[in-house]
Deep mutational scan, measured.
Amino acid sequence: MQNSHSGVNQLGGVFVNGRPLPDSTRQKIVELAHSGARPCDISRILQVSNGCVSKILGRYYETGSIRPRAIGGSKPRVATPEVVSKIAQYKRECPSIFAWEIRDRLLSEGVCTNDNIPSVSSINRVLRNLASEKQQMGADGMYDKLRMLNGQTGSWGTRPGWYPGTSVPGQPTQDGCQQQEGGGENTNSISSNGEDSDEAQMRLQLKRKLQRNRTSFTQEQIEALEKEFERTHYPDVFARERLAAKIDLPEARIQVWFSNRRAKWRREEKLRNQRRQASNTPSHIPISSSFSTSVYQPIPQPTTPVSSFTSGSMLGRTDTALTNTYSALPPMPSFTMANNLPMQPPVPSQTSSYSCMLPTSPSVNGRSYDTYTPPHMQTHMNSQPMGTSGTTSTGLISPGVSVPVQVPGSEPDMSQYWPRLQ
Rank of each mutant, 00 (worst) to 15 (best):
Q2T: 12
Q2F: 10
S4R: 15
G7I: 07
G7Q: 15
N9P: 05
N9Y: 05
G12W: 02
G13R: 09
G13T: 01
V14E: 06
V14R: 15
V16L: 13
G18S: 02
R19M: 06
L21R: 01
D23P: 07
R26M: 03
R26D: 02
R26F: 00
R26G: 02
R26K: 01
Q27E: 10
K28D: 05
V30R: 07
E31K: 07
L32Q: 03
L32F: 09
H34W: 10
H34T: 13
S35A: 14
S35D: 13
S35Y: 11
G36L: 01
A37W: 12
A37R: 13
R38G: 03
R38H: 02
R38D: 01
I42P: 02
I42V: 07
S43G: 06
R44Q: 07
R44F: 05
I45P: 02
L46W: 05
Q47S: 09
Q47H: 05
S49P: 06
S49W: 00
G51P: 00
C52G: 06
S54Q: 00
S54W: 05
L57M: 07
R59H: 06
Y60K: 08
Y61V: 15
E62V: 10
E62W: 03
G64N: 04
I71W: 06
I71D: 01
I71Q: 15
G72M: 06
G73E: 01
S74H: 03
K75N: 04
K75E: 02
P76V: 07
R77F: 02
A79Q: 02
P81S: 08
E82S: 10
V83R: 04
V83C: 08
V83K: 06
S85F: 08
S85E: 09
I87A: 05
I87S: 04
K91V: 02
P95S: 10
S96D: 14
I97Q: 15
F98W: 08
W100L: 06
E101Y: 08
I102L: 11
R103D: 04
R103S: 06
D104F: 14
D104N: 13
R105H: 09
L106I: 06
L107G: 15
S108N: 13
S108E: 10
G110R: 11
G110E: 10
G110W: 10
V111K: 08
T113K: 12
N114E: 12
D115C: 09
D115V: 13
I117G: 09
P118F: 03
P118R: 00
S119R: 00
S122Y: 00
S122P: 00
I123K: 03
N124Q: 14
N124E: 03
N124M: 07
R125M: 01
V126D: 01
L127A: 09
L127E: 06
L127Y: 07
R128N: 00
N129F: 05
A131C: 12
S132D: 08
S132I: 11
K134N: 08
K134E: 10
Q136E: 12
Q136L: 10
A139T: 14
A139M: 08
D140G: 10
D140L: 11
G141M: 13
M142V: 11
M142I: 11
Y143P: 13
D144A: 09
D144Y: 10
K145V: 11
K145W: 10
L146I: 14
L146S: 13
L146Q: 14
L146Y: 15
L146T: 15
R147E: 13
N150Q: 10
